[in-house]
Amino acid sequence: MSVSNERVRVLRGREWARPVRPVRREVRGVTPELDEGRPPLLFVPGFGHGAWAFAEHWLEHAASRGFSAYAMSLRGHGGSDPAPEATLRAYTHDVVQVAASLPRQAVLVGHGAGALVVTHALARYPARAAVLVAPVLGGWSTAGVALRRNPAGTLPALFGGPLRLHRRQLFSRELPEAEARRHVARLGRAGRRAQWQLLSGRPAEPAVGRPPVLVVGSPDDRVVPPAALERAAGRYGSAPLLFPGMGHDLMLDARWREPIDAICDWLVKEPQRV
């Protein structure tokens, strides 16, 4: 397993000397009526998305399955404070801050580039488990795929402009046109520096406490190709859980119920530490 063989870095001079500037963060939560002692879930949206993406369906559904569920917006996204100069480290800081504020050890669920943020957060917070949904773990291949699929929307991002995703990249044709347009209209943008850091793709440090990690995706995702899902799952010694016929935004697509049910089922099975 390549991830955990890397060495834990004890000296963190830069993090001590230059702490991330605090901002006001949006966190939305739904708690189940009956606390069954299940770990809380923290949903981390990808670049451009906010807590709203999970508030649409997944939060309520996870709560109905007995999990207290929280969704956050990274700085500069959704209802969090604007942060045009945000870096990957600042996003990681946001996730760790919210996770540590929850009453119990949380499960981190990252979507898209939010999954990359989650892999970095796992090195700074001992999560109960982690789920990477359609993970965009960075590197130039990510840019290559995006350029091929949506050259007009991707090219500006390489020069610091906004990344504009097309609704056909994000959703399957099953989702009504109007709903897809409504979601795309809500998309924001990630910080310029964070976008570049996504390209350079610095690998995350080893996860604290070796939490079990599940990779979820769709073979028909037009942002994350199946090979990238295999690669991501391979890092954690498992295979991806696939939902054919869905777009990149599994939490908003027409059949949103299937992946969140699969995630809840996996968590109920009490995954062992890998």
């Binding site: 001590w16 800081h93 700074r124």
Partner: peptide, 15 residues
Amino acid sequence: SRPLTQFPDFPMPDS
């Protein structure tokens, strides 16, 4: 100060 005091895997609230 806070960053040099907290546990490395459980930060104090940044507020």
